[in-house]
């Protein structure tokens, strides 16, 4: 079982203060890495034996922790309201989930998660030469969040159509803004006198 503290030590040796923090324990340990050293950190982790990139995703923290409505007065029977979480350092967090899998026995030798905070569309360097499935994963992050990856060509949409404008999983994209290719933008509502049959 790979020990996250040992991995922290190895990364500190390789990139110094580029790895900023280690949180969590065991399989849920998360290493936070700076944007400038992410490529080197992932190369070091791959060399340490993490042969499978399980997942690469992004989380948008715009508006995180802001509570628009006032907190209800504390009452023993109401569910516990948590204290407001700490403000995140940047807006987007890329999450790389790595697995060290022993092909002969089928057992996991360790898992580690690497978190990379980015503040704009310049995401990080592409890792599709380290793990080929990063190709589609990075395209998906670009498609839904607009985070770009340098060092690779061919960054195009994968789940949405090319005519789509915007990145829907960002927090400032309203869920019901529609961009249909054909057909009306909104279904006509019968109560407003709209006719549901399409024009002849």
């Amino acid at each position: 079982m790979k020990d996250p503290k040992a991995l922290l030590g190895v990364l500190r040796d390789a990139i110094g203060l580029g790895v900023t923090a280690l949180s969590g324990a065991g399989d849920d340990a998360v290493l936070s890495v700076e944007q400038a050293s992410i490529r080197r950190a992932l190369e070091v982790l791959k060399a340490q034996g993490f042969n499978v990139l399980v997942d690469l995703t992004c989380v948008d923290y715009l508006g995180y922790g802001k509570d628009e409505r006032p907190a209800p007065p504390s009452h023993p029977y109401l569910p516990q309201r948590w204290a407001s979480p700490p403000k995140p350092p940047h807006r987007f967090k890329l999450v790389y989930r790595l697995l060290d899998l022993d092909a002969a026995s089928g057992l996991e030798r360790g898992r580690i998660t690497v978190a990379l905070w980015v503040f704009d569309e310049r995401g990080g360097p592409s890792v599709r030469d380290l793990w080929p499935n990063a190709d589609w994963l990075e395209r998906e992050v670009w498609d839904l969040f607009g985070i770009g990856f340098t060092g690779r060509g061919d960054l195009r949409r994968i789940l949405l159509y090319p005519e789509f404008v915007g990145h829907p999983l960002r927090k400032d994209y309203p869920i019901d803004r529609r961009q249909p290719l054909i057909g009306p933008k909104e279904a006509p509502r019968p109560e407003e006198g709209g006719d549901l049959r399409p024009a002849p």
Binding site: L160, P168, D176, P184, A187
Partner: peptide, 20 residues
């Protein structure tokens, strides 16, 4: 028929907006 409970950016809200 109506888009179901996917009232979002990706789903056609009823195919009768496209075909009879």
């Amino acid at each position: 028929c109506t888009g179901g409970f996917y009232d979002n950016y990706a789903t056609v809200q009823g195919i009768d907006t496209i075909v009879p």
